[in-house]
Amino acid sequence: MLKDITLGQYFPGKSPVHLLDPRTKLIMLVVYIVALFLAVSWISYAVMFAFLVIAIAVSRIPLKSIVKGMKPLVFILVFTGILNIFFTTGEKELVSFWGIHIYWEGIVRAFFMMIRILMLITGTFLLTYTTSPIALTDGLESLLGPLKVLRLPVHELAMMMCIALRFIPTLIEETDKIMSAQKARGADFESGNLLERVKALVPILVPLFISAFRRADELATAMECRCYHGGDGRTKMKLLRYKGRDYGTYGLGILLLAGVIVLRSFGL
């Protein structure tokens, strides 16, 4: 069922990772990605991997959910791997056929690329799995706050993102319901050629758009009724405040980044 797509879904919990300030988690993700791109050797990858595994263990997110979230990305992964295997040249040629040469370097590179993508995505999952959409946008708004000086509508952007995130599950649920209702009238989404399949989407898309617009309308009215008029002078019920564990996490992040840079400077 559509509902079972876990990409970017929040898993409520009370683990130390869940309790971190969203800003800490956002910055840590950036630090982690930078470190991932600076890592060049088996050793630094191993360090990064260990860091990730510990973070997952602490967050108590079941491994199964992470693996399930990966499924839609298998294609990209395989594609990257194949490209790298076929188009990297090097010294140690392993096999060649039909004018294609496969080198040992290509395989190593493909492996690293795939591992890098996997670790990058897992890191991102860890953020979205442990942070509610509301907390996430709060964190983003606060981190991007300084850009207000440049007249960037930070609050509006954050609000838009918050609403979009909030409505993704609702729309998925709605799609599910409409699909079931049309299936009950004999609609068939699973067979036929491409054109027929595209046509079969009309009975879903029309009601879905209508209800999305209706919802948008209702939401706008509801927000106006509560006197919402943008971010100016709006106060927050839950203020973001750093705690001891956040400073500790930042410390770990600096250590990780420094470690990877030092390893890199030694050519590792």
Binding site: A181, R185, G186, V202, V206, P207
Partner: peptide, 22 residues
């Protein structure tokens, strides 16, 4: 099966076509 709030599943241009879908 007629769903809860089935009016949200209508999609055709005319009532006739919508009833004819099934």
């Amino acid at each position: 099966l007629v769903f809860q709030y089935p009016e949200y599943q209508l999609f055709e241009e005319t009532v006739y076509k919508d009833i004819a879908f099934g």
